[in-house]
Design a protein around this nucleic acid. Structure first.
Lengths: 91, 91
DNA sequence: TACATATATCGAAACATTTGAATACTTGAA
DNA sequence: TTCAAGTATTCAAATGTTTCGATATATGTA
């Protein structure tokens, strides 16, 4: 994972709304529906869509279409790689 | 560690210059001098000072004055706490 | 088909970040 | 003391982010 990717993931994590989205996966096992995220956050639908896009662009979330709905799963592999990079900072 | 703190650390990590500073600790054991960071980055002194301030404000770096010079040590504890929070995202 | 629901995009306002020139501050040395 | 070196602050310009209203797109259903 190069520094540009670390930067992108870090930026995706640098917002309390997006952190709250990721933490919601602890409650909702498996996947989280887009509509559930709209309910979770006190923001309009376009704002929520914007935040979800950043998490998807950073590859922290993987989107899956289900008819009219959209659900997300956490990309544990990318999260693990990111954590590995942070661990390597410790000399 | 609350979400505001996670946000702050993430934001401190969301810049390739600041990531490069942290990675430099792997080479220079123990501590890193402010002047060394100026040499490392292709930025003016005020810009470097700005980046170092963000890392200090996020408590990722601990500053120590040495006469006219300033050196930094990596705050492994904060880094560990941050990594713990990320690990908890994985359900 | 026509309609309703779910999600994305556009456009603009407000706000934050990054950068460097100029300058101020701090401290050791002459 | 004065001077020079190391670091911080101020200011402004450029750029990026967040938010929402309005609107577009996509898809299931009557």
């Amino acid at each position: 994972m190069d520094n540009k990717k670390i930067e992108k993931i870090s930026r995706a994590l640098s917002d309390t709304s997006r952190i709250a989205i990721l933490q919601e996966f602890k409650k909702k096992k498996d996947c989280l529906y887009c509509a559930e995220v709209n309910d979770l956050l006190d923001l309009t639908q376009p704002s929520v869509s914007h935040h979800l896009k950043q998490l998807v662009d950073a590859e922290l979330l993987l989107p899956q279409k289900e008819g009219r709905n959209l659900k997300y799963v956490l990309n544990q592999q990318v999260l693990d790689e990111y954590i590995d990079c942070l661990n390597k900072l410790k000399d």
